[in-house]
């Protein structure tokens, strides 16, 4: 039987065996909360996260013909959303904004080490803050971590999230965020120094 994917079938059509079906009428019910959560854990802005969910659905509708069923519907939608998030990272971390928030953060950690020998300065030395296994499941501690992540320069938190939350390949992160590998390592290091210091300051 010849299966034709005409526009009139959209929304109710079932694709051939072995290929994931696609059903936009179920999207909101099945994926809206998931996509919203995905967005908000990466950009920390409710309003923007809502907009992104909407944009994702609309973009998906436009691209519906190119959906080949190789991935599941949810993977496909998540990939569209992820591209949009990366666009935001890129926009936010370019231009004027970038310069001021990065230099503030750099200023903050200038005091961490002695400029001559690279030793920890007394006031900024890491101290024991508790038993790791307990902290890991402590909700309050996790909220502080999220707040500390929000305080990072956008580019730094983008690099941190893509690497440590999404496990993206380093080359891929450099490419989409337009940074050099050397820059990547500097950011990974600096983001962690600031995050850790922020946790210690706000937890103890």
């Amino acid at each position: 039987m010849e299966i034709t994917h005409t526009k009139t079938q959209m929304g109710t059509s079932r694709s051939p065996v072995g290929i994931s079906p696609i059903d936009p009428l179920q999207w909101v019910k099945k994926y809206a909360d998931y996509l919203y959560t995905y967005a908000i854990t990466r950009i920390n802005d409710e309003e923007q996260a809502r907009d992104l969910v909407q944009e994702t659905f609309l973009a998906a509708l436009e691209k519906i013909k190119t959906f080949e069923g190789r991935s599941s519907e949810s993977t496909w939608l998540t990939a569209i959303l992820k591209n949009k998030i990366v666009d935001i990272y890129r926009k936010k971390s370019s231009g004027l904004l970038k310069k001021s928030d990065v230099s503030d953060a750099e200023q903050e950690q200038k005091d961490f080490f002695d400029p001559d020998d690279g030793h920890w300065n007394e006031d900024f030395r890491p101290k024991e803050i508790g038993v790791e296994e307990d902290l890991l499941v402590n909700d309050e501690f996790s909220i502080i971590l999220q707040k500390c992540m929000e305080k990072l320069p956008v580019l730094w938190s983008a690099v941190f999230a893509m690497k440590h939350m999404d496990d993206d390949a380093t080359e891929n992160i450099c490419e989409v965020l337009k940074i050099t590998p050397a820059n990547f390592w500097v950011i990974i290091h600096r983001a962690k120094l600031n995050l850790r210091a922020c946790l210690q300051k706000n937890w103890i």
Binding site: A32, D33, Y34, Y36, T37, Y38, I40, T41, R50, V53, P126, I129, E132, L135, L136, F141, S142, L145, Q146, F160, A161, H164, M165, D166, K192, L195, R196, L199, Q200
Partner: peptide, 24 residues
């Protein structure tokens, strides 16, 4: 020790919130 903890927590954050769902 704390750096490793932070990375583990970051992973958990995603897993957690994706299970719990922040709802629209």
């Amino acid at each position: 020790k704390q750096s490793i903890l932070i990375n583990r927590m970051a992973k958990r954050l995603i897993g957690d919130s994706e299970n719990k769902d922040r709802k629209l």
